[in-house]
Amino acid sequence: MLRYVLRRILYAVPILVGVALLTFVLFYASASPQSLARRNLSTRNPTQEQIQQWLKDHGYDKPLSVQFKNHVTGLLVFRFGKSDATGEPIWNRIKQGAGPSGLVASLVFLTGLTAAISFAVAVAYFRGTYVDYFGTFLCVLLMSIVFIVYVIGLQYLLGKILKYGPIAGFQTGIAAWKFVLLPVVIGVLAGLGSETRLFRTFLLDEINQDYVRTARAKGVGERAVLLRHVLKNALIPIITSTVAAIPALILGSLVLENFFGIPGLGSYLIDAINSQDFAVVRAMVYLGSILYIVGLILTDIAYALVDPRVRLE
């Protein structure tokens, strides 16, 4: 098992190097540092010295090859440097924002997964009936609504009209639950349609397998067939598909945190977009990729745990 994990991590190294290269090409090679400096200096008409000083402070004055070396080595050891806009060390903000972001994202992920699996099982249990038909159609309806409309509409409905929770703000510790309640509910509802529909097809693929017939012929009841035999096999594609949920989770934190005033990484990134803070965006792109690759490795491990046919060698 350990060797398997180590090998997976080794595989990830060239991909991380690729990501570092990609971000470098994107941010260093295609944007002129001069204009970057002008944009970020607060004075209206910066003198040439001010610009030079800014470039020096932020490491944009060195030759491209040196910048590349610094960039790649910096990223590999998580040295993200200073924000272009405020000069604040990026790592500090990441440390502060990781907690709230992680809390919201992990709650959305776990609740959403549980809810989607439960609904998919229910719909699959009633397969071929009107429950199935309308459930599937409802899923298509739900997945046709754009995420931000969920956020705006449900915040208005749940927060302002029904007053189920505060509509903005954040506190650390136990008190946080009040502030993450609405964002999590909204995040879960927004992803429910497409996930339920996807998981339903996974379940139905398994329901037609021969081993299900064997289980029924043994006298296993329909509910146990679904919850034990079918679900365990359907978990394999479900697990594989959860990696695809990571970009959606990131998008979720971006919009939800910004909308509910949660001081997480999503809010940080949106501020950075608005102030054209390349250094922060760069760091976030890299961080997101690491998150994705870690997710992939975790998926592989989970996959191996569920499916005995995957040998951990």
Partner: peptide, 8 residues
């Protein structure tokens, strides 16, 4: 080949 549940 397929009549037994592969995950049990």
């Amino acid at each position: 080949m397929t009549s037994l549940n592969p995950t049990f």
